[in-house]
């Protein structure tokens, strides 16, 4: 729809600039390999990510305190991406001019490795075309899809469309 409900609607469900900064991992860490980005800042009662992490990299002080991440312990394995009930965890990895972004995905058709998909931002708007590098799968059918995008989009791309 062309109708724009005004500023108030644009912000609903979209992280602010400051919030994005807050959840962005140190870039030197992201250069070394994949790392989790947890876009969960509210005090919701949940600790799924905390126990899903095989490396104790996600700290849940209390069930209602938002998760904190220990970037040195995180290996970017993606278990948390597959488990998070809010689908709010992503992986990023910086590699020269490119970035790899991993997003949770629960739709059909399933993406295939090598396939070209449309990368979407937090508003669901297309930002670039991207190649699928990897598809992980949880036993309850959540996929974690890794795509390659231009480096500058690593904190922008958060979804895919096939």
């Amino acid at each position: 729809m062309e109708y724009d409900g005004g500023d108030i609607m644009k912000e609903a469900g979209i992280l602010s600039k400051e919030e994005i900064e807050k959840v962005t991992p140190p870039l030197d860490r992201a250069e070394k390999g994949p790392v989790a980005v947890i876009e969960c800042l509210e005090k919701i009662p949940c600790d799924a990510c905390g126990w899903a992490c095989p490396f104790d990299a996600i700290i849940k002080e209390r069930i209602t305190v938002p998760p904190k991440i220990d970037y040195d312990k995180c290996t970017g394995c993606g278990q948390c991406v597959l488990v998070c009930p809010g689908l709010a965890i992503f992986l990023i990895e910086l590699d020269g001019e490119k970035a790899k972004v991993t997003v949770p995905y629960e739709f059909l058709p399933e993406p295939r490795v090598g396939q070209e998909v449309v990368a979407l931002d937090r508003r669901g708007l297309p930002v670039t075309k991207a190649k699928v590098l990897k598809v992980m799968r949880s036993k309850d059918k959540t996929l974690a899809v890794t795509i390659e995008v231009p480096r500058e989009l690593f904190m922008e791309v958060r979804g895919i469309r096939i």
């Binding site: 609607m9 469900g13 992280l15 509210e42 919701i44 809010g86 931002d121 937090r122």
Partner: peptide, 19 residues
């Protein structure tokens, strides 16, 4: 929850507040 809203926004669904 914000995370539920973010999920549907990423799919391109607009949320009209005060509507």
């Amino acid at each position: 929850y914000f995370v539920h809203a973010a999920k549907v926004r990423r799919l391109g669904v607009p949320i009209y507040l005060r509507h």
